[in-house]
Simulated scan of single mutants.
Amino acid sequence: MLFKRRDKPSHLERLRVAVWPRHSFARSARYFSKRVLRLTASPHAIAMGFAAGAFASITPFIGLHFLLSFVIAFVVGGNMVAAALGTVVGNPLTFPFIWASTYKVGSMILYGEAKELDHTAIDKHLDGGFLEKSLDTLLPLIKPMLVGAVPLGLITAAFFYFLVFYSVRAYQRTRRLKLSSRKLPAAVKAAARDVDA
């Protein structure tokens, strides 16, 4: 293959790059923002899609964030690619903060007091493996997180909607102006030729 790497990266190297970028977080953020800005859709559709992905990444449904973001984006009329890109809000660096805050907010809504995540309770609920447990064993842990994810997810989605909407609108407007300024000299030359003829 023409652009294939000479030395195939190991699984550990792939995992390291997924969590910690090769060059810098700033370069990765610039690349990611350009991917979002260059989508071909209306600013509203891109922003709604990204907000749907951000909302889905706040929920405790690990492994289903893409599917959930696609469903939400379809319902609200958002861009599906932007929804997939919006799920990057939930990543290995932000998940501990998201889970702790959704649990705290959910327990405050359900029980009237903000409970901290108790590690002994988590060990009790998850002892023996996550997949071997029944839903009623996991419900005391997941229920506050799910309830807390709704208000925090709505706040996160609203924040990213406005951020992405105004960024995409400004980018698309600037791009249209650049393209029209390139076409203008050609149109002026053609008009000059018509006048000469």
Rank of each mutant, 00 (worst) to 15 (best):
Y171C: 12
A100F: 08
V164H: 04
V168D: 00
K124M: 10
S24K: 00
F32T: 04
T102D: 12
A114K: 02
G129C: 01
E13A: 11
T156L: 10
K143C: 10
A114W: 05
N79C: 00
F160Q: 05
T120S: 14
P92F: 10
L152R: 07
K124G: 15
G78I: 09
K183C: 04
L152G: 02
V75R: 14
V195S: 08
L67S: 13
D127C: 05
N79H: 03
G153I: 01
G63H: 03
F95L: 02
R173L: 00
A83F: 03
L152N: 03
V19R: 05
P9L: 13
A26L: 14
D127S: 04
A121I: 11
G63M: 00
S134M: 12
I58M: 12
P21T: 07
S24E: 00
R176Q: 01
S107D: 06
A170D: 08
I122N: 01
W99H: 09
G106K: 07
N91K: 06
T87M: 08
V17F: 09
V188T: 06
V81D: 11
F159L: 08
T102V: 11
L177D: 06
Y31D: 14
L177N: 06
A190M: 08
R14E: 05
T59C: 15
A186E: 10
L135W: 03
G128L: 05
